[in-house]
């Protein structure tokens, strides 16, 4: 049985850990709320741009644009959104496992794919395995502005346009609720399935439908990436919150059971002392 002092030390250190995890939980809860609000304020833009894109793409079937038509796939791009830090439960490993398995299954050599990593965890994971990471961005703010991501988004879209990639997939974690986040795979390019719920309008184009698509489609694809980033930020904070909550709960359980054995040990020590005194007194008589 551990000594009294050992148990006491463990109780103190577990208490300190639980204070930290508790603080982290509250910080992530606050960040999650803000990230959720950010994701919500992005919705009107996304809906609008989707509606317009769908209207144009549906209204002018004869207008061909490279971003709308599939071509034979020689090289696939994977955009993977992860967090910069750990301590978030299975958040990163779920996404990375999904990407890793897909790549293992689909591709024979590293010539056939390339990875664009957003977030340190994803970058390090793929770099360590010598997989083809061509672009990475780390240190994205908790409340990312569109400007921060625009550069990498337009590069990714540009690589599709100049035929570096023939298709682009987006892997991120979709925020369902504070306790549920799903790994989501979206085919970003080519944009073959643009759907919208609202009714389609037929527009006049100024100067022409082709010119509009030229401006609109890259912007649409970039905003899809940004939307995914906002979504995964909300998931990240939710995942950290859940992980830290269970860490705090575990610490509390541990402290309880440790206190129990501490008290037992203390009692045993006292009992023994009394027995010794009584025994000693009896020996004197």
């Amino acid at each position: 049985m551990a000594s009294l002092r050992d148990i006491k030390n463990r109780i103190t250190s577990t208490k300190k850990t639980s204070q930290i995890t508790n603080a982290m939980q509250m910080v992530s809860a606050a960040k999650m709320n803000r990230a959720e609000a950010n994701a919500k304020s992005f919705v009107p833009y996304m809906e609008k741009i989707q509606e317009v894109t769908a209207s144009i793409a549906a209204g002018s079937k004869d207008v061909g644009h490279p971003m709308l038509t599939s071509r034979p796939v020689k090289k696939t791009g994977y955009i993977v959104i992860t967090s910069d830090r750990g301590l978030c439960g299975g958040y990163n490993s779920n996404i990375l496992r999904a990407v890793y398995q897909t790549i293992e299954k689909r591709h024979k050599s590293s010539e056939e794919y390339a990875i664009i990593a957003i977030g340190r965890k994803g970058r390090d994971f793929f770099k360590k395995r010598n997989m083809n990471v061509i672009l990475d961005i780390v240190g994205v703010a908790d409340q990312p502005a569109f400007a921060e991501i625009k550069d990498i988004a337009s590069k990714a879209v540009g690589m599709y346009s100049d035929e570096t990639f023939d298709e682009v997939h987006l892997y991120y974690s979709h925020y369902v609720s504070a306790i549920q986040q799903d790994v989501t795979v979206k085919k970003l390019l080519p944009l073959t399935d643009i759907s919208t719920s609202s009714k389609l309008t037929s527009y006049e184009f100024e100067p022409s439908a082709e010119d509009i698509l030229e401006v609109l489609l890259p912007q649409y694809a970039e905003s899809l990436i940004y939307g995914a980033l906002l979504d995964s930020k909300a998931s990240e904070h939710a995942a950290v919150m859940t992980a830290m909550k269970s860490a705090t709960d575990n610490a509390t359980d541990l402290i309880n059971s440790l206190s129990l054995s501490y008290n037992r040990a203390r009692q045993a020590a006292i009992t023994q002392e009394i027995t010794e005194i009584v025994g000693g007194a009896a020996a004197l008589e």
């Binding site: 317009v52 100024e206 509009i212």
Partner: peptide, 19 residues
């Protein structure tokens, strides 16, 4: 200011898209 020039839009304009 659209790419093809200045554009004024009044109520009742025909549906249109312009960069």
């Amino acid at each position: 200011r659209t790419q093809s020039g200045e554009l004024g839009i009044l109520p009742g304009h025909i549906p249109m898209v312009a960069p």
